[in-house]
Design a protein around this nucleic acid. Structure first.
Lengths: 363, 363
DNA sequence: GCTAAGTTTTAGATCAATCCAAAAATGCCA
DNA sequence: TGGCATTTTTGGATTGATCTAAAACTTAGC
């Protein structure tokens, strides 16, 4: 009765072995087999090993879908990011993956491309798949009510990197405010008095935090020069903004950038003007992506540890799933300034800049 | 099939509305509701709209898990890559996501970190979740028998970028062979006679294809200088290899690199030796990652279109799921050489266009 | 008005697990 | 050996959908 479908390559057809089959083979009931599978302490050792043997012999495969239907967990999570092609998010997803893997969880991934509509579609799909929770890097323009809606759906949601809505909510991210302060302090210590901040789009939390850090630092150090340029956060913007700034009078002697992409653009823009980044104008980025150490000059950057953020977010999600009514948590990692050559702190010398070996590889 | 319903803010507990409830509300049977959900042409228009109304009113959410248990599809796919932090894979995953999204599919993502054991664990988990298919970028050292095993499990598997095992198999990737040939032809046309090839680890298909392209090009052009350096494919390797090569006599006048990371490393290594990439030694990379145009000088690279590969792979997977016994397909995209400054073909000039920034002067 | 054919609708079994309460087996001691 | 408490095991109900075959309803033709 079990040899209906043609076994592929001489192997047995292992496709449709069920608890029932194992129970029959081992001479016990379906319930007992279920208990064995879930490592219940109720079953006697003898029975357990007998059932285990049958499981192995028949090549049984656990059906999580069926289990989820009756039980309450699916052991799945939904992850939404807005730009998976950005290596920052790649590293973060790798962190999430590593943390979930340890707990037998598995995650659906979606790329919202910063479109609230796409994000919404995916979240609805996740609901249909009954995921146990969501890790959400909210798309720009996300309705703050979304968080309530999710909670109303009974889906735990951890916001990552950005957050919308009112506290308390679960969140994992980096202290962008502090990161900018570190960069500013460093520049001031190097003697800079005219420091601009480049980039940041719309009003999402991660941008607000950076801008606050910038304004506060100016105040703390009693600096009067203030120049904060809004923009999307690409290299192209970096080029445009630095060129605009350097044409002003007075021009800044240093710039802190929303992320490393903007910083790369700023360095490129300086070079196009015949200026030397780090000498004619200091540049500091944010994120410390792998390419930072590779710039010419090597880019000073505020490391935001995406892999660690991913791990923390995933762990928080698992805690919340285990205890849905627990107090909301905000895990905020400390950033760390990685000083290289682009801020003029060290004298660029050929051969001196190799700090961060990469392990990336493909194809 | 999916109802875009969800009554606004936290009204009733919408969590456990089932087909049964809708059937009762609309005064029809469970079966009829099921048919409506699946847009069957069997149900009369009047009934259909009546049921639709009930669905909306009650805020019903389709339970895909339950559907999958009885039906044959889960509308899920498993995707395995070996380095999600690499922007190349980020772009590829974005392509997969875009293609699947259109068809209502959703995908599990795993990062194997090139560990066959991790890969195996994930694949087994995917089997437990009964995914409809797998997109696999096989980890280095993957047992070729894995493909048969998967087919034996009844899980369609599309290999991506690399392949193991014997044809016929489903595959989506780029023609690395042709890519290297394009790079070689270009260099030869520029007058180079001593061209080395840098990088490639172990013996997986994507490396073999490149090496064959290299050797064949040498032969085709009657070049006698041959230098092929194996290595893992990181920036660090690029630095080491170029330094080794330039110390030889004769040194190469050009190098083609396994990927852009190696090429960046090679350029850095040249600079450390006080040499100018593109002038003292031409450098060509592979992949055309975003950072390529940003190099100093801008990197000439063979574009491998990761987003398109992702889309093709996903579409092929859907075709295979729809028709499991169909003939295996190999979708191989043509690569395209993007000429910039690092191969010395263009004379760097300040103020050039955005896409091909030239910054060679300020080195 | 009665069939025959076609159109809609439905009951009941089924998918593969978990949960629960009760039954069976075992151990302990008088 | 019986009584009682524990330890194991089990049958049957349940989860929320789909499938199948048959029932109920229309319509058309004579």
């Amino acid at each position: 009765m079990r040899q209906d479908a043609s076994p592929r390559q001489g192997q047995r057809d292992t496709a449709s072995v069920t608890l029932q089959d194992i129970a029959a083979h081992a001479g016990v009931s379906r319930s007992t087999v279920s208990l064995v599978l879930r490592e219940s302490p109720l079953v006697a050792e003898r029975t357990r090993s007998k059932v285990q043997r049958s499981i192995k012999t028949l090549g049984y495969v656990y059906n999580r879908g069926a289990a989820a239907l009756r039980g309450s967990r699916t052991s799945t999570l939904g992850v939404v990011v807005y730009d998976i092609a950005n290596p920052f998010f790649g590293a973060m997803v790798a962190g999430i993956d590593a943390a979930l893997n340890r707990e037998g969880y598995v995650s659906f991934l979606a790329n919202s491309e910063d479109s609230p509509a796409r994000q919404q579609r995916f979240l609805e799909r996740m609901r249909e798949h009954r995921v146990d929770g969501i890790l959400l890097c909210p798309a720009e323009g996300t309705d703050p009510a979304l968080i309530d809606t999710l909670s109303c759906w009974g889906m735990p949601c951890i916001q990552v990197l950005r957050h919308v809505g009112e506290p308390p909510f679960d969140y994992a991210g980096t202290d962008f405010h502090q990161g900018v302060c570190q960069a500013m302090d460093h520049l001031v210590a190097l003697g800079h008095r005219r420091i601009a901040f480049l980039g940041g789009h719309y009003e999402h939390s991660a941008t607000r935090e950076r801008w606050q850090g910038y304004r506060e630092s100016l105040e703390r150090h009693g600096l009067t020069y203030q120049r904060l340029l809004r923009s999307t956060v690409t290299r192209r913007d970096g080029v445009a903004m630095i060129q605009q700034l350097m044409a002003e009078s007075p021009a800044p002697s240093a710039v802190v950038c929303h992320n490393d992409l903007v910083a790369f653009g700023a360095m490129l823009g300086l070079k196009r003007l015949g200026l030397v980044p780090g000498t004619d104008c200091a540049v500091i980025g944010t994120d410390d992506v792998e390419e930072a150490s590779l710039g010419d000059p090597a880019l000073t950057s505020v490391a935001t540890h995406p892999h660690a953020i991913g791990e923390e977010a995933a762990r928080l999600a698992l805690r919340r799933i285990a205890n849905p009514e627990g107090a909301r948590e905000q895990v905020v990692l400390a950033p760390r300034l990685k000083v290289r050559d682009s801020c003029g702190a060290t004298r660029p010398e050929p051969g001196a800049t190799w700090t961060e070996p990469s392990t990336g590889e493909h194809a």
